[in-house]
Design a protein around this nucleic acid. Structure first.
Length: 748
DNA sequence: TGGTTGTGTCATGCT
DNA sequence: CAAGCATGACACAAC
């Protein structure tokens, strides 16, 4: 049975590692700096057994057994301090990696209906404003998304200035990756700069007056929105005849599937997305996934029918002359683009659409141009155009249509670069030497992921405590106390754990075999040197025949022969006195004492006999009180010596197992990092796809005069219900800025 | 000569 | 309560 102490000493560290695996931060430093004895001693170790050292030099390594774990080759690698630093490093990287998994696993199709508004998701990444889209009836989702913000924030290494005091090199690298992507996607790097955003925020304060004007203006607009919904007579879809200018009211409106389709309160949800890019990325991911799924489904939807079956000059589409000074909303009937709902409506981006020629200039949903002409206004990066169009386009009066835009993603990281980053990250963060990094790379090349872990990870974790500590200690203790044979206990304990103890020659042979079978060669080489006496040599001496001391606790005969025995020739040459001196030196103090006290039996028997047999043995002889006392002391010391050796071996095993676990976790980290990079890569590809689709759709839009809309003046935006609106960029910009302020205010 | 390392031993707590 | 085990702490020897 494992004692609580064992749990504390061995389990606690591993538990810490496991906690780090699942993303729980365990600040070991706190415990160490506070000088709490348990943890500090567990990790650093008060005794020499834990100290980093060259336990043995290379002379101790046995040929064929590889490098001894304590050999000098591993000195720099195998140290308690290094283990500690690795453990500390674990909680840095595990958070992002676990989040990568959660990123995908938690993508709930149903939840994504409300949680993954395509607009917000697709626009958030480059957003400089932070806005929680949640509304009054969506408190749960709000907390959920906010939590996801921070997690994804760390995950993707995007923006985490307020809480990124402990940004690691890895985080910075990942941030760089994302920056490159986002820059290529049209988001300026400064967007992710917290100080810059602070400046923006200050600027926003300066613009507060204008925003308040917007409020008044939009307040009326919201009401007008409800009043001026146009309903398609054929499809029953609602088209907001007047743009809902009040962003705040829209923001508070909760996107809901149960909401009547006609209510376009969340038309501008894309603009309401927050500045917290994690949410953006999460949303983007979900949205892009939904897009991909929709493309795969190739579902013909009412939206596509509307878009492409409507003949040019469709009266319906020409009736959208909006009042001046009001933004123009263009509902292109992309209802419920999110995954869970009527996502087929999102087949606007279906391959079917892709196949359509861009020049197919049917007048789709012509709109009356609004008065929004402030082309130079910083268009909110939270809208689709902000995401898919280069930043310079957003900021300049570029009237060219989308399809002519350069590929903003051309400069993204290539795969080799990402892989290199991943590996460099490992090498730098985890103290990997180049050899280890190359090993990781090989693992990557083999695309095996955890293939090598199979030989380590499952066994190491299970065997670390199971075999070396709990099972062995319990079995050895129980067997030694219950069995009638001391040798059986010794061999059993050693075979399971490599435990040491007094043993006869036959036992040591068994032990050697057992050792080889169990695979304890490293420890074996060490513990073969734990004693100095050769029982065979002792027995060959006439005057010691009756003693037969054997302090080769766990020494294998071969090791004894090779390591401890002097050359036979030397023995022959030496005189009997020399032999006697040598043997005297080889005898332990207890053996000397036993010989001096004329103890009539061997120390081996004294120590290893079970209690009953030991008492019988004592009863057979007439022993003085001093002899009895010495015998009991010898027995006590002998058993304690074995116990100490076992204890030290357990310590060593624990350290080795921890080292192995750390290596396994490093492999896991490498694999997860690689997966993360791959996810980012696929995300980038999907962004490209969405961008092209966006441009294609946008390029097909025509106003009432049959002219294409200028991408610098208009942008497509997703609504919460899946519809897509064509709105002026200036309006979108205003909305985005307004939404950007809200989270900041909330933080205060 | 001092530091490191391995080992033995003792004290102590626990089973 | 005795026996045994586990382990921290210390001493000592070898290097």
């Amino acid at each position: 049975m494992l004692s609580l102490k064992k749990y504390l000493t061995e389990g606690l560290l591993q538990f810490t590692i496991l906690l780090s695996l699942i993303g729980v931060r365990v600040d070991v430093d706190t415990y160490l700096t506070s000088q709490l004895p348990p943890l500090r001693e567990i990790i650093l170790g008060p005794s020499s057994a834990y100290t980093q050292t060259q336990f043995h030099n290379l002379r101790n390594t046995l040929d064929g057994y590889g490098i001894h774990p304590k050999s000098i080759d591993l000195d720099n690698y195998f140290t308690a301090r290094r283990l500690l630093s690795q453990v500390r490093a674990l909680d840095r990287f595990q958070v992002p990696t676990t989040e990568v998994n959660a990123w995908l696993v938690h993508r709930d199709p149903e939840g994504s209906v409300s949680g993954s508004q395509p607009s917000s998701g697709l626009t958030l990444e480059s957003s400089s404003g932070l806005q929680d889209v949640t509304g009054p009836d969506n408190g749960v989702r709000e907390s959920e998304t906010e939590q996801g913000f921070s997690e994804d924030l760390e995950d993707l290494g995007a923006v985490a200035p307020p809480v990124s005091g402990d940004l690691t090199k890895e985080d910075i690298d990942l941030i760089d990756i994302l920056w490159r992507q986002d820059i290529d996607l049209g988001a300026g790097r400064e967007i992710f700069d917290y100080s810059h955003r602070q400046k923006e925020h200050d600027v926003d304060k300066d613009l507060c007056d204008g925003a308040e004007q917007d409020d008044t203006w939009s307040g009326a607009g919201a009401e007008a929105l409800a009043r001026n919904l146009l309903v398609d007579g054929e499809t029953g879809e609602s088209f907001p005849a007047q743009f809902p200018a009040d962003i705040s009211s829209i923001t508070e409106a909760v996107p809901s599937e149960s909401e009547p389709p006609g209510l376009q309160n969340h038309l501008l949800s894309p603009l309401l997305t927050g500045t917290e890019s994690p949410f953006d990325l999460e949303q983007q991911w979900q949205d892009l996934m939904s897009i991909m799924e929709m493309q795969a489904m190739e579902v013909n939807t009412s939206a596509s029918e509307i878009l492409y079956s409507a003949p040019p000059g469709d009266p319906l589409s020409t009736n959208y002359s909006l009042a001046p000074n009001t933004p123009i909303n263009q509902n292109v009937s992309l209802h419920q683009a999110s995954l869970g709902g009527c996502s087929q409506d999102f087949s606007l981006f279906s391959p079917e659409v892709e196949s359509l020629p861009v020049a197919g200039g049917s007048t789709l949903l012509p709109l009356a141009p609004s008065n929004s002409t402030s082309l130079n206004s910083t268009f909110s990066s939270t809208n689709l155009a902000g995401l898919f169009f280069p930043a310079q386009l957003n900021g300049s009066a570029n009237d060219t249509a989308g399809p002519e835009l350069p590929d903003p993603l051309g400069g993204l990281l290539d795969e080799a670069m990402l892989d290199e980053i991943s590996l460099m990250d490992l090498a730098i963060e985890e103290g990997f030497n180049p050899v280890q990094a190359s090993q990781l790379e090989e693992e990557f090349d083999s695309d095996s992921g955890l293939s090598l872990d199979s030989s380590h990870s499952p066994s190491s974790l299970s065997s670390s405590d199971g075999s070396s500590s709990s099972s062995s200690s319990s079995s050895s203790s129980s067997s030694s106390s219950s069995s009638s044979s001391a040798s059986s206990s010794a061999s059993s304990s050693f075979s399971e754990e490599g435990a040491v103890g007094y043993s006869s020659d036959s036992e040591t042979l068994d032990l050697e075999e057992a050792e080889g079978a169990v695979g304890y060669q490293p420890e074996y080489s060490k513990f073969c040197r734990m004693s100095y006496q050769d029982p065979a040599q002792l027995s060959c001496l006439p005057y010691l025949e009756h003693v037969g001391h054997n302090h080769t606790y766990n020494m294998a005969p071969s090791a004894l022969d090779s390591a401890e025995l002097p050359a036979p020739g030397a023995l022959k040459k030496g005189s009997k006195e020399k032999q006697a001196d040598f043997l005297d030196k080889q005898m332990s103090r207890d053996e000397h004492r036993a010989r001096a006290m004329k103890i009539p039996f061997t120390n081996d028997k004294i120590i290893n006999l079970p209690v009953e047999e030991f008492n019988e043995l004592l009863s057979k002889y007439q022993l003085s009180e001093a002899q009895l006392s010495l015998i009991r002391d010898i027995r006590r010391r002998g058993k304690n010596k074995m116990a100490a050796q076992n204890c030290r071996k357990r310590k060593l095993d624990t350290i080795l197992n921890l080292e192995r676990d750390v290596e396994d976790l490093q492999r896991d980290k490498a694999r997860l990092l690689r997966e993360k990079v791959e996810f980012l890569r696929s995300l980038r590809q999907m962004k490209q796809k969405v961008q092209s689709l966006y441009q294609e759709v946008f390029g097909r839009l025509r106003d009432e005069n049959g002219r294409p809309y200028s991408p610098s003046q208009y942008a497509l935006q997703y609504a919460g219900d899946g519809s897509v609106l064509l709105i002026p960029r200036t309006l979108a910009d205003q909305q985005a800025r307004r939404q950007e302020r809200k989270p900041k205010d909330r933080r205060k």
